[in-house]
């Protein structure tokens, strides 16, 4: 492995990490601004113009608050909980292709940290690991509300992972590849986006993404009307901050994933008809990708301030009795369409 390669990847990782954190930070502000807009209020506007410094103030406040570890808590696991939550949230973005290759001098720089052969499954693995942070935190708090929240989180995430995996299978039948780089590269232009081939699959994936990130209407693990604060009832200071932050990072990563696998990633309409050089196409592509991601983040917030929370039995019924059969039907339909297409076209 040459030295320049390591430097290149190192810079890319730092940039992706910083962007992830900044977007997660400003998602907290955006969430409150969107809430204000939906409810005909102003939202935070005191710190800086339009409240632009609000996330910094919140972060500072989290750092300087007193940290309380309950006497009955299991100390190592209590600390491990939020740590795992934030780590698993951050490592998901490693396989997402942010753009095509940039040519600087005679070096070709791929705008993707790691082109793993099974990239899409890697993200699944990371998501599956994310539930440990919540479970350990909830159990180690030694509080029955926290434990209830943790147990809810675990069962919810396992139930929805199934439907999510099944919706992905139908997508993979269309793309014939597990590598995210290839999946995005196939969706050139506008008509090749996977959303046109897999509308039902996308809908299932979207619902499951909401459930996996514990967002409203699936935020039963932290349902404040029943469970005080859910799994993070006993947490204070930056540990609570890390839990909240990991939720926003998860939202960012799942938005990026949805934009990449269903909405063409960095591809935009007429990208090769404008007579631009390859580097410009890449740069515009990255911007387009981020616009798509931000649109998805806005959609997450829009839903949060529009829909009420599910009841627990409704959540399980939706997951097991609606989404899984639908996803199975989607797989069968996709198979039939592929065979018909091969036979007659």
């Amino acid at each position: 492995m040459e030295f320049a390669f390591i430097i290149e990847k190192f810079i890319l990782i730092i940039v992706v990490f910083v962007i992830t954190l900044v977007i997660a930070m400003y998602s907290t502000l955006a969430e409150r601004k969107v809430a204000g807009f939906m409810q005909d209020r102003l939202g935070p506007d005191r710190a800086g113009i339009f409240g632009i410094l609000q996330p910094l103030c919140d972060g500072g406040k989290f750092f300087f608050k007193e940290e309380i570890i309950p006497a009955g808590a299991h100390r190592p696991l209590f600390i491990l909980g939020p740590t795992l939550a934030i780590i698993t949230a951050c490592i998901g973005s490693a396989v997402i292709p942010w753009g095509q290759a940039l040519t600087i001098g005679d070096r070709v720089v791929e705008l993707q940290v790691a082109d793993v052969n099974v990239g899409i499954l890697y993200i699944f693995g990371v998501v599956a690991l994310g539930v440990y942070g919540i479970m350990l935190g909830g159990w180690a708090s030694n509080n029955k509300f926290s434990l209830m929240g943790a147990v809810r989180a675990a069962s919810q995430s396992i139930s929805y992972e199934l439907a999510m995996g099944l919706s992905i299978i139908a997508l993979l039948m269309v793309t014939q590849s597990l590598s995210l780089k290839e999946i995005v590269a196939q969706q050139e232009g506008f008509v090749n986006w996977n959303i046109w081939a897999q509308p039902l699959g996308f809908l299932i994936f979207l619902i499951c993404a909401f459930a996996e990130t514990n967002r409203v209407p699936f935020d039963l693990p932290e349902c404040e009307t029943e469970l005080v604060g859910g799994y993070h009832t006993e947490y204070s200071s930056m540990k609570l901050g890390l839990y909240m932050f990991s939720e926003y990072i998860n939202m960012f990563v799942s938005s990026a994933l949805m934009a990449a696998i269903y909405f063409g990633g960095y591809n935009f309409p007429f990208m090769y008809d404008l007579g631009l050089s390859a580097n410009w196409i890449t740069i515009i592509g990255v911007f387009v990708f981020f616009i798509k991601i931000i649109a998805f983040i806005f959609f997450f917030m829009w839903i949060r301030w529009t829909l009420p929370r599910f009841r627990y039995d409704q959540l399980m019924n939706l997951g097991w009795k609606m989404l899984i059969p639908l996803a199975l039907a989607n797989i069968a339909l996709t198979g039939v369409f592929i065979i018909l297409k091969d036979k007659f076209f």
Binding site: F124, V131, A154
Partner: peptide
């Protein structure tokens, strides 16, 4: 064996052990 690695990761670590812990 990347596929086996990831599947082991998802199924054993992500699902079965979560249920044990549960």
């Amino acid at each position: 064996a990347q596929f086996l690695a990831v599947v082991n990761f998802i199924i054993y670590m992500g699902a079965i052990m979560v249920l044990f812990l549960f």
